[in-house]
Design a binder for these strands. Sequence first.
DNA 1: TTGAAAGCGCTAACAT
DNA 2: ATGTTAGCGCTTTCAA
Lengths: 352, 352
Amino acid sequence: MDNLRIKDIAKKAGVSTGTVDRVLHNRGKVSNNALAKVKAVLDEIDYKPNLIARTLGSKKSFTIAAILPMQDDDAYWSQSIAGVEQAGAEWSQYGIKIKTFLFDKLNGSSFIKNTLAALNDTPDGILIAPIFLHEARAFFKYWRENNTPYILFNTNLKEASPLCFIGQNLYESGKLAGELMLIGQQNQTKLIVLHIDEDVKNSPHLTEKEKGFRSYCESSSLAPEVVSINLSHALLSSIHQCIQEIAADLQVKGIFVTTSKEPSIVASLLEPYKRTDIRLIGYDLLEQNLVHLKTGTIRFLINQNPKRQAALGISHLANYLLFKKSPPPLELFPLEIITKENLDSYLNSDIH
Amino acid sequence: MDNLRIKDIAKKAGVSTGTVDRVLHNRGKVSNNALAKVKAVLDEIDYKPNLIARTLGSKKSFTIAAILPMQDDDAYWSQSIAGVEQAGAEWSQYGIKIKTFLFDKLNGSSFIKNTLAALNDTPDGILIAPIFLHEARAFFKYWRENNTPYILFNTNLKEASPLCFIGQNLYESGKLAGELMLIGQQNQTKLIVLHIDEDVKNSPHLTEKEKGFRSYCESSSLAPEVVSINLSHALLSSIHQCIQEIAADLQVKGIFVTTSKEPSIVASLLEPYKRTDIRLIGYDLLEQNLVHLKTGTIRFLINQNPKRQAALGISHLANYLLFKKSPPPLELFPLEIITKENLDSYLNSDIH
DNA sequence: TTGAAAGCGCTAACAT
DNA sequence: ATGTTAGCGCTTTCAA
């Protein structure tokens, strides 16, 4: 009762393996008569192709282009790139090659330039973080017409109709931060939402988080006061001053930092004031964040897991190209809550 | 600069492909002279075997035996079995067959009988939950001598030297529950650890959790009083009465239920008393638990993810058999915290 | 429109 | 001890 092979189907149908292949893949010319015979056999059995043989037989080697922002001081993106590289190493044994195209995240024409370079390389699949949505549109159109599969990463664009979108629900992420902020809090508390970014207005990923946070707070019977503050890293002194003022306000019981790199900055500035009653919540398992998570200055981190997100993007493309396995259209990563106590269980785990 | 094949290595070394194969896999007889020549080439290049071709070439089909407790009313184990089946379907395309052997979790001789049946089937790999540690020893010895790889699941036994252990750190899990329990709590609180199991004494997975929980509470400056209670499901009325007494004690601010199925029972018994100040913490994303997580009666669930644990066990065995890829010796799953707010992000995610 | 056959890179059986 | 060769199940080319 073993799996039937193409050869077996051919014998059953009284045709050659070539014809069965043509029917199976709907390629080349097949007479109605032969078609009927093969279909009859196919209906009767449950043919499962041997994907390994298929891949070996079609001796193709695939190239995947990864188009991402390059930003050495931005942990989220540098971890994403690490994820691409890790997955690339894994799939290289299957003849998959990765080419990385890095653009300046603050410069639209750099995005266009790099994406164009990728396009001219005619890759078989694409992983792209289309943070310049408008500029990206034309490329999507081109790839769609060319039947080149592309996966969107981090920034979604519904009408792009990609093979898959990989990311997180940022609104829900903000709501989660709200929930964690309010556990066990009293009435009449004041909470700070702190964006530390050059250009908050044009950063939907930050404002989405704030919206979610506020929505949770408003729905809560504790009805805390929520204050938003936008800062740029450019001036460390302004951050310093901001934290000083917050520390002086005894009503403040929590700070929600919407980015990855900055929670640790806030933590180290806040620490001297010994305001252990201020609950600090931020993002991602960066080394500096972990230091402050362990000392308790940071209470919760929400893990976005950029490395695994990116690695999964590559894997999905590889599986699609090699084995015709389609990924789910939406790959929303779970909102992982990291505390002092479960941190090690994440760090020691290869699963994430 | 494409990848070199065995054929290329053979030509470079001036030997045949057969000899290269022998050197590569250290099998058969090879003269020192030939060995040296091949090694010289191998040192010079970075040979990466084509795993697809290897798998196809060694036209083996493998059988994996999964030896697990069968317990319809036990969500943890039934989800594990689901995980095995899911992974089995995935790997069937690669010629991997799964045979499941289910034993009675309360009956040692049923364990022996089923494991013996599995052994007699001479599988190529084994996934086993050795909850009868003593009885399992002889089997491990046999498989080790037979070079049959086995992966331990849920229950670890250091001296078993398996290919891999898959599970969670239960002590840390208890500590995490402690941390979640004490966030924002006041002094002078009383906390309940509730084991609902037929045989708590012989359930190290439950007592480990309690130890971790107590350890965290003792280290906390809040110094809560911790009371343990053991109950059997046999008597629903006794559970009822226990909850009634807890609800009457205004000092109680939290209940930690150490099992998967029971948090929802406790929740529904507790709900009528409107003790929203009692924080209920339990395990796993069972449907009934989710209902109470959404209403707020259950505040946190710690996800053990049995389904994914089991699926990963099968995947590790499959990768080992098919591609000679060794898993990490210890696969400790992260301690995932589930709340009302991040729940959906887990449910919608195929990643877990 | 169809069948036959070569070949993907590797393994394993078979000569020598 | 070593080289040769026939597969693994599929794709793809080439004749017919």
